Amino acid sequence: MLEAVKFWNEPNNKSHWDLELDPGWPKFAQMVQLAATAVKAESPSLTRVLGGISPIDPTFLTLLREQGALADMHAVAVHGFPLDWNHWTIHEWPEKLAEIQAVTPLPVWVTEVGVSTFGAEEVQAWGLKRTAELLIGRAPRIHWYSLYDLPKAWPATTRHREAEGSSYYRHFHMGLLLEDGTPKLAAKHFHEFAPELGICQWFHFEDHRLEDAVRWLKRLGVTRLRTGLSWADSFRPGCDAWFDRQMQALDGFDVTVTFCFTPEQRGLQPHHTSAPQVPEEFAEFCARMVRRYAPAQGAAAAAEPAGAAALA
């Protein structure tokens, strides 16, 4: 069911990793290296990707590389939102990719890129077209964020929430569809860029949108999907039934799944951004998910992917 697995999400963003608990990221580097090794042992041919960094920072990637975090990775990933949060223009995408390519020989995936409709739907429609022009052919995987707007009744995953002003509220307007499934202007044009342009859509535990999302993804011509399996959710009653339902619904897509979110009871602090008390436990979760959804397939599992060309 899986094309690739990613280890964590935006580790250099304090909304996703508590930097005060891990200055210099040695705990993060150890955690993802243990997880990558565990996944490699379960399914050697499954593509392993470092969680998308945001901001796009070659110095941060160099720091992780020097600590061994990339040793068992096949690719690295970046996230960029120049029309909403980043301090660079959308036209600088080629330069941003080049900055990362200069510090690693690994392929650079763009696993989140998007434009909100906070100001106007026309801005998103233009941003979709310009993003496709700039990235298709330059990155082997591109995932538009996202299919749905975040429901207003749910909190966005940030540290300071409403105190962030308009930056916070933009999180709720990133979808090609309104939260009720009504298509926006950009949705009418997405098929022009699929399947080269995939989609990133996170599903919450027992998400009511799952089946409708699958129908929309097919309608839009999507073949490559990025989503997540939450380590924190794995402690909920009925977690395996939900994971099975989610992955079965997504069968037929080339799925990149992100493993992330520390269970509160297993963190150094009780928060999903915390470094874990025992990093091997995250590795065990990743390995269990791979055994369940991407087991090694006989002799095909004996060989690693053949570098950048195999991932393009």
Rank of each mutant, 00 (worst) to 15 (best):
Q246Y: 03
Q269F: 06
E284R: 13
A275Q: 05
Q246L: 14
W216H: 09
H271I: 06
E280I: 10
R245S: 02
R266V: 12
R224Q: 14
V278L: 01
F285K: 06
T227V: 05
H271S: 13
A213T: 14
F193N: 00
R215I: 10
I199K: 02
F193E: 00
R266N: 11
D244S: 07
I199S: 05
V257M: 02
R236F: 15
M247V: 08
F253M: 06
W216I: 06
L225S: 00
L225H: 02
R226L: 15
L250G: 08
V290P: 00
K218D: 06
T227G: 10
H272T: 15
F203D: 04
A249P: 03
R224H: 15
R224C: 03
E206C: 14
S230M: 10
L210E: 08
R219P: 08
F235T: 15
E280S: 01
H272P: 09
H204D: 13
A275E: 07
D244M: 03
R215T: 10
L225K: 10
I199D: 02
G238R: 04
R245F: 08
Q248L: 13
M247C: 05
Q248D: 13
L268N: 04
M289T: 06
F261W: 07
M289L: 10
R266D: 14
E196T: 14
G252K: 08
L225M: 12
P279Y: 03
F205E: 07
E284D: 13
S234Y: 15
V222C: 03
V257N: 04
F282V: 02
R219N: 14
C260W: 10
P195G: 07
S274M: 04
T262W: 05
F261R: 07
A249F: 00
S274D: 01
E192C: 00
I199A: 03
R215K: 12
M247E: 04
Q248R: 13
I199R: 03
P279D: 01
R236N: 12
V257H: 01
T273Q: 05
Q277C: 08
C200Q: 15
Q277H: 10
L250E: 05
Q277V: 15
D212N: 15
H204M: 13
F253N: 00
S274F: 04
V255D: 03
Q201F: 11
C286F: 11
T256M: 07
L210D: 06
W216A: 01
D254Y: 03
F243H: 04
L220H: 07
R245Q: 11
A213K: 01
H272G: 05
D233V: 13
D240V: 14
L229T: 05
F203R: 02
C200P: 00
W202Y: 12
F235D: 13
M247G: 01
P237S: 12
R215Q: 15
D244A: 12
C239D: 14
F193T: 01
R266P: 12
R224M: 07
A213G: 11
R288H: 12
R224Y: 12
T223L: 05
V257L: 02
R288L: 10
F261P: 13
D212Q: 12
L197H: 07
Q265M: 11
V214A: 11
D254H: 09
E196W: 06
P263E: 05
P263D: 04
Q248V: 11
W242H: 03
R236D: 08
A232S: 09
P279N: 01
P237A: 14
Q269M: 12
Q248H: 14
D240L: 12
L197V: 09
F285I: 08
L217F: 10
E280Y: 10
F235V: 15
T256N: 06
